[in-house]
Write a protein that binds this DNA or RNA. Structure first.
Length: 209
DNA sequence: AGCCAGGCCAAGC
DNA sequence: GCTTGGCATGGC
C-alpha cells in the first residue's frame, strides 16, 4: 500500500489538494465543495461554485441569509440541488455555531446530508485532522489491485486499513487520496483504460486489448 | 445517446 | 443487517 502511494506520486506528482478558487474562506470552500461533489463530477461542481461567486454567496453567513430556492438554483449544475442546498445550510449553521478546534466527526455525521466521506473530507482537508478519506475510487482501485477482496468493504474498515498501512503523515493522507482520484478519473475508470495504465502489470483486473 | 460522476438517506426485505 | 430507489445536472 505504501509502495502504491509512492508509485502514484512518482507518476503524477503532488496534487496539492483541496482545489480552491480563493474567493471563499479556505475552510468554508472545502466544506462547500465537499457537499457539492457528492456523487457528482468536479466539472459540475466548478460550475456551481462559479454561480455562488456570481450570486455573492461566498460565505456561510450569506448562504444562511439566502432562501432555499435561490441557493438551490445557484448550485443547480452540481445536481441533487434541492437536497444539497438544505445540507449546505444545516452544515453552515452548525459550523458557525462552534469553534473549529471543537468540531468532532460525530457532530458532522449527525447533520443530515453529511455522511462519512463528506465529514472526513472536511476533517482532513479543512481541519488537518489525521483521517483518510475513502471514496468509490478508493474501493474500486484497491479492489482491482487486490488489496481488498470486495469493493463493498465497509467504509471505516477500509479507512482504518489504509490509515495503518501508509506513513502517519497528514500530507501523505491528503496526497494519497488526491492521487487515487487523479488516477481513477483518467485511467482506472469504471471502464478502465488498462492499456495506458502503469499499474496494469500488477493488476488483478487487467483487461487486455 | 447512454452511462457516469470525488454520496447520502429512507424504506424495504 | 444488507439491498434498493430517489435525488439531478452536464460531460464524454
Amino acid at each position: 500500500m505504501e509502495k502504491l502511494f509512492y508509485d502514484l506520486l512518482d507518476k503524477y506528482g503532488y496534487q496539492n489538494w483541496w482545489p480552491l478558487t480563493g474567493k471563499f474562506d479556505p475552510f468554508e470552500e472545502v466544506c462547500i465543495g465537499a457537499v457539492l461533489t457528492q456523487n457528482t463530477s468536479w466539472k459540475n461542481v466548478e460550475k456551481a461554485i462559479e454561480n455562488l461567486i456570481k450570486a455573492n454567496l461566498t460565505s456561510f453567513e450569506r448562504i444562511l441569509q439566502t432562501d432555499d430556492k435561490t441557493l438551490a438554483n445557484a448550485i443547480r449544475p452540481s445536481g441533487f440541488y434541492n437536497q444539497k442546498a438544505k445540507t449546505l445550510k444545516r452544515l453552515a449553521k452548525f459550523l458557525l455555531s462552534v469553534e473549529k478546534e471543537n468540531i468532532k466527526r460525530e457532530d458532522l455525521l449527525s447533520i443530515k446530508g453529511i455522511g462519512k466521506e463528506t465529514a472526513d473530507t472536511i476533517l482532513l482537508y479543512g481541519l488537518n485532522k489525521m483521517i483518510f478519506v475513502v471514496d468509490a475510487y478508493t474501493k474500486r482501485l484497491l479492489h482491482r489491485l487486490g488489496f481488498i477482496d470486495s469493493p463493498k468493504i465497509e467504509y471505516d474498515t477500509l479507512r482504518i486499513l489504509i490509515e495503518s498501512a501508509v506513513p502517519r503523515d497528514i500530507n501523505v493522507y491528503k496526497e494519497f487520496h488526491a492521487l487515487i482520484v487523479k488516477h481513477c478519473k483518467e485511467v482506472c475508470k469504471k471502464n478502465p483504460d488498462c492499456k495506458k495504465c502503469f499499474l496494469s502489470n500488477r493488476c488483478y483486473n487487467y483487461t487486455y486489448g
